[in-house]
Amino acid sequence: MSETPLLEIEDLAVALPTERGPLRAVSGVSLSLAPSRSLGIVGESGSGKTMLARAILRLLPPGARLAGAIRFDGRDLLRLSRRDLRRLRGRELAAVFQDPMTSLNPVLSIGSQIAEALTEHMGLAARAAMARAVALLAEVGIPEPERRAHQFPHQLSGGMRQRVAIAIALSCEPRLLIADEPTTALDVTVQAQILDLLARERQKRHMAMILITHDLGVVAGRTDDVAVMYAGRIVERASTRALFRQMRSPYAEALMAAIPRLDAPPHTRLSAIAGSPPDPTRPTPGCPFSPRCRYARERCRSEAPPLSADSRDHHYACWFPLPDRSRAEV
């Protein structure tokens, strides 16, 4: 990764207001992503993945506090004016959200929801934008795009709607696409199609992508790098190949064991990790995973392990990492 990074995150922290006091959704996250590379972010539900994505998009809930630095193409996103931020979003930085049932406006036609980004950012006239919207619908694999463009979201299936959301995200040829669990809300049969569509479009457009998922199986073979999150922190980061060859953190190992098998019913994920994540409004000293970690020892409960790298740029935060030897079951 010697190239100048497209996205650089340094020591990012996000705190959200709650009735029980500030909730630390993200702590000390540092990341970097080169142009046209892809990064998977994996972690249990509640580990702060969405808040990290929203922090990059500067779309945090009201009252949220941010610390640290996020640089996109050299520009500090936290210092950008609202106007510049708006020019960036949708234009260079696009997003696909988790639930296509709720992420499209129910009272606007599909075509107009794609076209509006084009008129806003590309200065296209209404008619040209609509023609481009129809072409985009075709590109993301929606049959009869002219007819569909005039329909409303409720007239489409979940998978179709997610394709529409992808068409919206791709419309202005962004340089970075953030896809936050784009397949979690979909039928298993549709999931692979959507993931393949994303991978194909990314390559075609030389676009960088952050693919967020709770399922390690989704990033396997699909992204260049992987970062594993737990309790708002990155606990392991490596190239996807290296990570699957050798997991160093006990948490990643547990996640791996929790990959749903094809024969298991959907949404049985993570049943393999016993216990639940710590209360993010009550940070404890020590390693956040220690109450659930089968390797935890005395030190784990008093001191949090820092994220450090081995010789091959494989980062992990663990006092007692798993030994570095290849595993057969990858």
Binding site: L59, L88, R89, F97, T102, S103, N105, V107, E120
Partner: peptide
């Protein structure tokens, strides 16, 4: 607070359009 408003923001639409079209219309 709906997702589609976050989506509209992520599209970089003007606050005016978000309020008057995406939020007021529903």
């Amino acid at each position: 607070q709906e997702d589609y408003i976050a989506m509209a923001r992520a599209k970089g639409l003007s606050p005016r359009r978000i309020l008057l079209v995406h939020a007021l219309k529903p």
